[in-house]
């Protein structure tokens, strides 16, 4: 899956997780851009992604992510080739 395809899937998840009607998501989107993105909804975000992509993140993998692009790259690396 390409990074752009993964970002598109992440964008769908974000609508549900952050309960917003529309969200313009790019690789540069970060928690600063989404008002509803706080520490609790971040947990829901992560476990929703784990469910969707059928992966499990290690804490260290997601501790220092800057934006959606970083997240997509971690996911891409965990997906079967």
């Amino acid at each position: 899956m390409t990074i752009d395809e993964i970002v598109a899937k992440i964008a769908d998840v974000m609508v549900d997780v952050f309960d917003v009607d529309e969200l313009d998501v790019t690789q540069a989107t970060s928690a600063d851009d989404v008002e509803e993105w706080d520490s609790l909804s971040h947990i829901r975000f992560i476990i929703t992604l784990e469910r969707l992509f059928k992966i499990k993140f290690l804490n260290e993998e997601i501790a220092d992510l800057k934006n959606v692009g970083d997240l997509a790259r971690v996911i891409q690396a965990k997906l079967p080739a």
């Binding site: 549900d16 997780v17 309960d19 829901r44 929703t48």
Partner: peptide
Amino acid sequence: LDLNQLGQLAG
């Protein structure tokens, strides 16, 4: 309902 949906309904 999943965790996200429960949160939305709670609101």
